[in-house]
Design a protein around this nucleic acid. Sequence first.
DNA 1: GCCAACGTTGGC
DNA 2: GCCAACGTTGGC
Length: 152
Amino acid sequence: MRYWLMKSEPETFSIDDLALKPKQTEHWDGVRNYQARNMLRDQMKEGDLAFFYHSNCKEPGIAGIVEIVRAGYPDHTALNPDSPYYDPKSASDQPRWYMVDVKFRRRLNRHISLAELKSHPALNDFPLLNRGNRLSIMPVTKAQWNHILHIE
DNA sequence: GCCAACGTTGGC
DNA sequence: GCCAACGTTGGC
């Protein structure tokens, strides 16, 4: 199994929103970046765990943990002209974009802010902290995962 | 709201 | 295939 970090803007979809969903499960739609798409489609598997990261908000940081409960499958919002994620170049017989289903596991005991993550030398290689990184899905090593849970 | 960084688009 | 222009991300 692998570990991940998944970004979401809490004003759009927060860990609290996920916790309120039926079965506390929701599909992770709207990823429109090829590198992130490849991870959704090829690498994320049922049983993987991911940090739920709140971005573009007052205090960006890790808010909780989710589990991947369905591996990559076509993101149907790309085919819906009414969706903000509509992509006219996508087609149902040749899907361009993918998503996974995630299930709420728990909130962290405390919110771990981006500023705090930056202060840990052990996380120097954490992709989230690399300058200019804009990926909304990124891999987390077991060591990084454990480190973050340790400082929780 | 600013702006640096980056990805994508499209003319050539 | 280059690269300038443009749009988006996301921290601050």
